[in-house]
């Protein structure tokens, strides 16, 4: 009974509380109370949508990963700008990427990373969570794209989650 009234998602609750403090103009008594209520209420309401609690094994790897992704986003935008402004037609391709990650949250993070980084958008995950469909804007070599993604993004995520 207690577990139903507690905080099923402690990280989510903490994030909600902090974001609410940042959104309100300055921290006051009212914003703390309302933030605490929201931090309790929203995880309770959305409980059914979280199939399992996200399990980080090594959360301290996350900041480094995010920094790398941020730098890659900048280079990705430059790459895409060059491709857009160039005259010739892009040689685009659909690529099936074999996933080694198993955790749904890890797959979500990988898919979002792929969408934000050079020349690729993740389009779909297969029903058995084993393959990711990627659309590459301009590439000649599908295998090179797969290797690059595996080396740069999936390896660190594998270390973080498994």
């Amino acid at each position: 009974m207690m577990s139903r009234l507690g905080f099923p998602q402690p990280y989510l609750s903490l994030t909600l509380f902090l974001v609410w403090q940042l959104l309100s103009d300055g921290i006051s008594g009212g914003s703390v109370v309302l933030g605490a209520v929201l931090a309790w209420l929203i995880p309770q309401i959305t409980r059914g949508f979280w199939p399992q609690r996200p399990a980080f094994i090594k959360p301290w790897h996350l900041p480094g990963y995010l920094l790398r992704v941020l730098l890659d986003i900048v280079s990705a935008s430059v790459t895409v700008s060059v491709l857009i402004l160039r005259a010739r037609e892009p040689r685009s391709a659909f690529i099936s990427y074999p996933l080694q990650l198993e955790h749904p949250l890890a797959i979500t993070i990988l898919a979002s990373t792929i969408s934000l980084t050079p020349g690729t958008v993740s389009a779909d995950v297969s029903d058995d969570n084993k393959t990711l469909l990627i659309h590459a804007l301009d590439t000649d070599d599908e295998q090179a794209v797969i290797d690059e993604i595996h080396r740069r993004y999936e390896k660190p995520l594998l270390e973080m989650f498994q």
Binding site: P90, A93, I95, A111, S122
Partner: peptide
């Protein structure tokens, strides 16, 4: 942004939006 792109790509594949002739590979 990646979530919107992903869900729009899914919708486009479901509708069967055409691709240019140069695209290699097929959507599922």
């Amino acid at each position: 942004a990646p979530v919107s792109a992903n869900i729009l790509a899914k919708a486009a594949m479901h509708i069967g939006v055409g691709t240019t002739g140069q695209t290699r590979g097929k959507p599922w």
